[in-house]
Design a protein around this nucleic acid. Structure first.
Length: 362
DNA sequence: TTCCTGGCAT
DNA sequence: ATGCCAGGAA
């Protein structure tokens, strides 16, 4: 009663403390990651670097940061510049709404706050283009305020050291991780700790981790269970592709044209009838038009025997919609890459299950 | 070549 | 829940 819970909690806290301690030591002794804004005290420069780094790798943002600081040494300089000059400096970085928000925030601070950058988490969070991550980063780096950053690195590191299978891409998961991150933060060393955990995620606990170089290997719950490559968990299945396979069963006498699938795709090395693939559903006329375009087989050369049968097959990462058109040709067309197989010998060839089922019934 | 990553605004 | 973007990984 209650005991299990508090024991687990204590265990968790111990693990967290051990990690934080080791992390800070790693940061002092081994972390050699350098960045032009690291250790910076000017909130303007920290803010600028964080906006540039949103969705952007350090290596790419580096040069942009340097050019911005050279061109606009203070937020007042930035606020006074014409939009176009600022966009020109941003050119190539992507996510251009960040630049719009950057301009709006610079002008807001220059005109409404006499160029003084806000110094509380809440006020920082209220700035355009600043969300929870960026607000915590600025508040901690500029003012050492005790707000834990939660970015992709932190999700990854925390999910691994605790072997948490909680998905990170759900509202619930974000809540759990942000609470854990906050509990984990050594309050008086917010700046050092926040920078350290992100550096650690970037150089050691990478998506493909360098566990052999990790100070926490012996305590990391993921490493101990050999799950480090599986964490963090994301709930959203990789986007399911929708494909429409319009098969044309070409029959000549008692023989059917089939084709060997060789592309690096599903069903490699299996066989299939003539395929018209599309990323949307085509009606019969569209399919037959495509047949003429791709293979030069014109309506005059065949008779349509049967209408389309529609089937669907779900794979982990794609959904295949099938339709079939059965055509009888009066003369055998020249078809590169196809072989004509008499119907009762079709069973010798390997087909995908859905095709096998269809062909055996028709 | 395609796939994956990543904070915020909407 | 999606779109925004570019670059590195697979």
């Amino acid at each position: 009663m209650g005991k299990t819970k508090s024991t687990a909690k204590n265990g968790e806290k111990d693990l967290g403390r051990a990690f934080a301690k080791g992390l800070l030591q790693w940061n002092r002794q081994e972390n050699s990651r350098e960045m032009p804004w690291k250790g910076e005290a000017d909130p303007y420069k920290i803010w600028l670097s964080e906006i540039i780094l949103q969705q952007t790798r350090v290596e790419q943002g580096w040069k942009y940061y340097e050019r911005f600081i050279q061109t606009f040494p203070t937020i007042t300089d930035l606020a006074a510049a014409p939009d176009q000059a600022i966009f020109k400096l941003w050119e190539g970085l992507g996510y251009y709404s960040r630049c719009r928000n950057l301009i709006a925030t610079a002008r807001f601070i220059a005109t409404e706050r006499n160029g003084i950058f806000p110094d509380t988490y809440g006020e920082i969070l209220a700035l355009k283009g600043v969300g929870p991550y960026t607000a915590a980063a600025i508040a901690s780096f500029a003012y050492n305020a005790p707000y834990a950053v939660l970015d992709g690195n932190v999700f990854r590191v925390l999910s691994r050291i605790y072997a948490l299978e909680q998905p990170i891409d759900t509202t619930e998961g974000k809540k759990v991780f942000s609470q854990l991150a906050q509990e984990q933060l050594p309050e008086k060393q917010a700046a050092a700790y926040n920078q350290a955990i992100m550096d650690f995620g970037a150089v050691i606990c990478k998506p493909v981790p360098n566990c052999s170089q990790c100070f926490f290997q012996e305590q990391c719950q993921a490493f101990l269970g050999n799950k480090q490559a599986l964490l963090p968990i994301k709930s959203k299945k990789t986007q399911i592709r929708e494909r429409w396979f319009h098969y044309i069963v070409l029959q000549y006498g008692n023989a059917v044209a089939i084709q060997h699938r060789t592309a690096k795709d599903i069903w490699q090395n299996l066989y299939q009838p003539l395929l018209i693939e599309a990323d949307k559903k085509l009606n019969k006329n569209e399919v037959l038009l495509q047949l003429e375009h791709s293979y030069g087989i014109r309506p005059a050369q065949y008779e349509v025997i049967s209408a389309a049968v529609n089937l669907t097959q779900k794979l982990s990462h794609q959904t295949i919609h099938f339709s079939f058109i059965h055509l009888e040709v009066k003369k055998k067309p020249q078809l590169e890459g196809f072989q004509w197989v008499v119907k009762n010998e079709l069973e010798r060839y390997p087909f995908p299950k859905t095709l096998q089922q269809f062909l055996s019934k028709n």
